[in-house]
């Protein structure tokens, strides 16, 4: 879940320090490293397709402007998620009553199996609606586990909880989403 730097890759903390010392390349590397995860998080939590890129850009920009508030006790990625989460909340508030989670901008169905593809896309959209309504920890544990492949130990560190609690949140999320998608 957190960046898993290889032997020749700088850790997130080292890149943050390099950026603080004036390295723009370090900022660029951090964005490149976490861009897709932030995009997935925003989209899965309800951001519209057309907003994902702008929101992700704003999340990174705010993160770098407020680096002093990252203490390094949580992973850089989960800290980014918390900024993205607040941005998304503001976005929903601004668009109160106009937040549409529909299939309006979906991809074209797969021509080999259009019915199956439409069904899958509908399920994906229902999941986005369901995820948006889940309690925060349930939603984030589920996304970190399923989309990022994080272990419960990693999730516990990222979300400042325990592995056992993370496991419980995951199972609650699965139960509620199963009901929703049944």
């Amino acid at each position: 879940m957190t960046a898993h730097p290889g032997p020749d890759q700088a850790s997130d903390a080292a890149l943050v320090e390099a950026y603080r010392a004036g390295s723009q390349a370090a900022a660029s590397e951090l964005v490149t490293r976490h861009a897709r995860a932030v995009g997935r998080f925003l989209y899965s939590a309800g951001a519209s397709q057309s907003d994902v890129e702008d929101l992700a850009q704003e999340a990174f920009f705010r993160a770098f402007r407020r680096l002093d508030s990252w203490r390094g006790d949580a992973s850089f990625r989960s800290w980014l998620f918390s900024i993205a989460r607040n941005l998304l909340k503001d976005e929903f508030r601004k668009r109160r009553g106009r937040q549409v989670l529909s299939l309006e901008d979906r991809d074209l169905p797969n021509r080999d199996d259009p019915a199956g593809e439409v069904e899958a896309l509908e399920a994906a959209e229902r999941m986005r609606v369901g995820l948006k309504d889940l309690p925060r920890l349930q939603r984030e544990v589920f996304l970190l586990r399923v989309q990022e492949g994080s272990s419960y130990d990693e999730i516990a560190v990222a979300l400042d909880t325990t592995p056992g609690a993370a496991r419980v949140h995951y199972h609650h999320a699965v139960k509620r989403l199963k009901e929703l998608l049944a």
Binding site: S28, E29, T32, A35, G39, R40, L42, A124, M127, Q147
Partner: peptide, 22 residues
């Protein structure tokens, strides 16, 4: 389904372009 969402999201963000903008 969650993976399908992730794949669709991946197509919305180009990391290098985003890094340049940021």
């Amino acid at each position: 389904t969650a993976r399908l969402l992730a794949q669709r999201a991946d197509a919305l963000v180009e990391p290098r372009v985003l890094a340049e903008a940021v």
